Simulated scan of single mutants.
Amino acid sequence: MSHVKPNREYSRAEYISDAVVHGLGIGGALIAGPVLVTLAAIWIGDPGLVTALGVYAFTLLAMWVCSALYNLVQREDLVSGLRRLDQSAIYFKIAGTYTPFIALASGSLGFLAGIWAVALAGASLIILSPGRVAVLAIALYLALGWAGAVLGGPLVSTLSPLGFWLLVAGGLTYSAGVVFNVWGSLPFHNTIWHVFVLVGTVFCYAAIATEVALAA
């Protein structure tokens, strides 16, 4: 989940702190994702919703694993490939986050298809590009993440007040964290950025869990 490398080497303390954050992210995804899917299966039992939550849980875990590989594996020969994997996973996680909300809303399939189409296009751009699209990638992440607020009116209108504000809090947290993502000269900037991602992820997860609980 990083796009701008600093013009210096990371210190041991920076790597350790970043590893801790990634450990929390991966561990949380391994526990929270299956719990949410299981509860939805027990409480609601709708196959479409359970599948949508499974997609969300998988993309959430994939994002953290790919980020850990890129940010913590210190192999110069693997940097380019791991960077593309990491950046591609973010697109799918954003689309994966939208998926349960749309399943709960029982509609907006065209909007969902559009979100996944943009995610696939963004990932393809990352994978096929020569690695010079960092600024464009960040802009597309933000546009995709906030697309629901701009274009997903029917989807937003189905959310509970608590779910809505938790989702907004998640979006604002992710967006604010971008400042630290690109601030490569700041010590611990990568760790700080990933803390923002972790907190934003918790907000979004809480929004989904809230809507699932209210639908039960």
Rank of each mutant, 00 (worst) to 15 (best):
A103V: 08
L104P: 03
A105C: 03
A105I: 02
S108W: 04
G110I: 12
L112N: 01
L112P: 01
A113W: 10
I115T: 07
I115M: 13
L120H: 04
A121K: 10
G122E: 05
A123Y: 10
S124H: 07
S124R: 08
S124Q: 07
S124P: 05
S129N: 10
S129L: 09
P130G: 15
P130K: 15
G131I: 06
R132V: 07
R132P: 04
V133K: 09
A134N: 14
V135R: 15
L136M: 12
L136A: 14
A137V: 14
A137E: 15
A137C: 14
I138D: 07
A139E: 11
L140E: 04
A143T: 13
A149G: 08
V150N: 07
G152M: 02
L159C: 06
L159T: 02
F164K: 12
W165E: 00
W165F: 13
W165I: 03
A169V: 11
G170W: 01
G170D: 08
Y174R: 03
G177R: 03
N181V: 08
V182L: 10
G184E: 06
F188H: 12
F188L: 08
H189D: 08
I192C: 01
W193E: 05
H194L: 12
H194K: 12
F196K: 01
F196H: 07
V197K: 01
V197I: 15
V199L: 15
G200Y: 03
T201I: 09
T201S: 15
C204P: 00
C204T: 14
A206V: 14
A206T: 14
A206F: 09
